Amino acid sequence: MPSPSPRTGLRIHVIEDDEDIRAETVFALGELGFDAQGFADAPSFYKAFALQPCDIAVVDIGLPGESGLEIVSHLRTTRRLGLVLVTARGRLEDRLLGLREGADAYLVKPVNMMELAETLHAVGRRLFAEGTMDDGKAAAPAAPPQAAEWRLQEGDWILGDPEGRQMVLTTSERAFLGCLFRQRGHAVSRDDLIRALGGDVFDFDEHRIDAIASRLRRKAAKLGMRLPVHSVRGTGYVFAN
């Protein structure tokens, strides 16, 4: 049996009314190094949150009583913390609504626990960088502004360029670019890109990788964006500008 992962220091509250999913998520996150607790509805979550706030809340939308969207909207107006929506609602309109309500990320069920963990790590890094994580210490002085650059925002569902233009991404485009962004400036293998897309490296049409890259370039060109995604012969792709 593999050893438990090192502790992350992140306190996670999981609000999910399905008992099995809640228990599995809390257990998996605990094994991956998070301090995780589960709650079946908004009232039980709010009670625990008042006693000991979490760093990031993982919220199902379809909760009894107060919905996940209402929880996210309420928390975003009262306190700065990480908010991740996890739901079976996968339409683009639903994802955009969740992000507009204040979610940092939006994941569609069934969720791979490794993807959820990486999402929590990413949200945690942003909170620490912004000085909003409650670690008992005063926030560090703000760093001087940096030159504008390419960025993934709104839970990585929107790509922004240095000139401020934005492009909404599909699920596969988000996974593809997210993988390239994590290794920006370095070539990413086709196998790694296939895994990021949830595929099996032994049973996957590699032409899909090229099709996604081509589609992204075309979409970007229509918006006046010069997308720095380049093919690397014999390896895969690289995001380098």
Rank of each mutant, 00 (worst) to 15 (best):
Q153I: 15
Q153F: 15
Q153S: 15
Q153H: 15
Q153N: 11
E154H: 13
E154A: 15
G155R: 03
G155Q: 09
D156N: 11
D156R: 11
D156T: 12
D156Q: 12
D156F: 08
D156E: 12
W157G: 05
W157Q: 00
W157N: 00
W157E: 00
W157Y: 01
I158Y: 00
I158N: 01
L159T: 04
L159M: 12
L159K: 00
L159P: 02
L159N: 08
G160F: 07
G160K: 00
G160W: 08
G160M: 11
G160E: 07
D161M: 09
P162Y: 07
P162V: 04
P162T: 02
P162F: 05
P162M: 10
E163R: 08
E163G: 01
G164Y: 03
G164A: 09
G164D: 10
R165F: 03
R165Y: 07
R165L: 02
Q166Y: 09
Q166A: 13
M167Y: 03
M167H: 06
M167E: 09
M167S: 12
V168E: 14
V168T: 15
L169R: 00
L169K: 07
L169W: 03
L169E: 02
T170P: 05
T170G: 12
T170Y: 02
T171G: 13
T171S: 12
T171I: 12
T171H: 13
S172D: 10
S172H: 13
S172T: 13
E173V: 05
E173A: 11
E173N: 06
E173P: 01
E173G: 03
E173T: 09
R174N: 00
R174G: 04
R174C: 03
A175R: 12
A175Y: 11
A175M: 11
L177Y: 07
L177A: 06
G178Y: 06
G178A: 08
C179P: 08
C179T: 12
C179E: 10
C179L: 06
L180S: 02
L180A: 07
F181P: 03
F181G: 08
F181T: 02
F181V: 13
F181R: 01
F181E: 06
R182V: 05
Q183M: 04
Q183I: 06
Q183D: 08
R184N: 06
R184Q: 13
R184Y: 08
R184P: 10
R184G: 09
R184E: 14
R184A: 15
G185I: 04
G185N: 01
H186D: 15
H186F: 14
H186R: 15
A187H: 11
V188Q: 02
